[in-house]
Structure formats: structure tokens, C-alpha cells
Amino acid sequence: MVMLMLKVENLHVNVAEKEILRGVDFELASGELHVVMGPNGSGKSTLALTIAGHPRYTVTKGRIIFDGEEVTRAKPEERARKGIFLSFQHPVEVEGVKVINFFQRTLKNLRGIEEVEAYDMIFKAVEELGFEGSMLSRELNVGFSGGERKKLEMLQAYLVKPKLLILDEPDSGVDVDSLKVIAGVIARLHKEGTGILLITHYGRILEYLNPQRVHVLKEGRLVVSGGMELVKLIEEKGFAAVNGDETAVKA
């Protein structure tokens, strides 16, 4: 039997008094890969940040259930410890904190791995993914290009091996070579059993992946859910063509 991992129920979210999400429902079974697509400003990042627990995003109605427990009000670090990992669209610069030390701390907090062991693990992972080892001695995201930041997010996800990986536009601002690398890591984690919620604007990355389900988010609501045919429709005719009524199954 397929285990339900993430359940989002009638989710309404405000940012600074403005309603961004207006009743979102979906379910993700463990090990599944779902895609959320939508035009700019539809609330894609809000959905990602709300599930991860950003304090600026206020849930006014609805619930988030992860692994059978309600996490709607849980602190972000508690959600992370339960197995939710968000790969950021815009990872922030943290001056003075070296990547390697930050990763060691992350591994200690999320997987209980001690410093020395973590050190070896991190270097091994860099090698496995074919990344530049030199990035580990730099300050976290400081002066990193968009592509480098995204790769660093993937490296963290690969190390943490979360139950649920939320990817907020991992394909924006990266070149084709980086895109292949990023998709490769996602595919690998998916194969190893990580549930994935992939948010994307373009769908380019989906050429390398095999999602179970595609959701389309417009003006704070999931208007349709379906298979890869939705992606094709959006690529050909744009988001305007997808309204839920005349296309596939309503969410």
C-alpha cells in the first residue's frame, strides 16, 4: 500500500495581510514526484515556503499534515528535523560561515552525524556529484553565482537525504549543463525513495525526470492536476490555455 506522506488541506495563506493562497488541496504519497507549475505570482514559492514554515507566511485556514502529524504551526527547524527539506529559489548569503562548517552543523542536527564523519561524507558527496571541492571552503553562498547556489542546495539535499524534498525553481537562472547536473541529483534522490515536490516555471527540467503528477497553480488555487500532457499543453499554448474546465481532471 502507498503511504501518504504530505497532505495539504484547504490551505489559505496571507503575506502581509494579502491573501496569496486561497484554498490549496493535494496529497503526495511517499516516494512520489509531483510538479507544481504556474505563472509568475500564482503563489508557487508561497506554497513551498509555507510548507517549510517561513514565519512571514501566515496560515489563516487549512492544515499541513506530514507523516501523519499536523505541522501547520511547527517551527521550521522542527519540520526540517521531521524530514522536510526546502531547496531555495534564492539561497541567502551567510557571511563568515564556511560551507563545510555549515554542512557539518546541518548533518549533525538533521541526521545526528558527528563532525569528523560528516567531514568525510561531505567530501565524498562532492566527488560523487562531480562538484568543485573548493566551494566547501568558501563562505556560504557569498559571491556564488545563481547556478553555484542551486548546485549547493542540491548538494545539501543529497547529504541530508530528506523524506520530502521541496524544490523551488531549481532550474531558474542555471545553464544547460548545470540543469542536467541538478536534474541528475533529483532523479537519484527520487530513485532512493525521497518524495519530491518540484516547483517550476518552465518545465525544461522535466525532460530529465519522470513525475507522477502535475499540478497547475493559478491565482492561489490548484486549477488542474494531471499527467505530463499538461506540461506539453502549457509549453505549446501557455498557462492561459489551462483553466481546469476544458482540460484535464480538476484538482
Binding site: A52, E77, R81, P91, V94, E95, G96, R105, L110
Partner: peptide, 25 residues
């Protein structure tokens, strides 16, 4: 807020994040 949230989302509590940032500084 965003810097703190980034660190929180990696399982690092507010207190821990502050000491990391101070030591980095």
C-alpha cells in the same frame, strides 16, 4: 528574517543560528 529562516530550515535553531553568525562575523 530570510537569513534566519534559511538556517532554521536546515535544522538550526534561532539561538544556534545567532552564535554561528556571530562567530562568522
Amino acid at each position: 528574517e530570510d537569513k534566519l529562516f534559511y538556517m532554521n530550515s536546515r535544522g538550526i535553531s534561532e539561538e544556534e543560528a545567532k552564535s554561528l553568525i556571530v562567530l562568522g562575523f
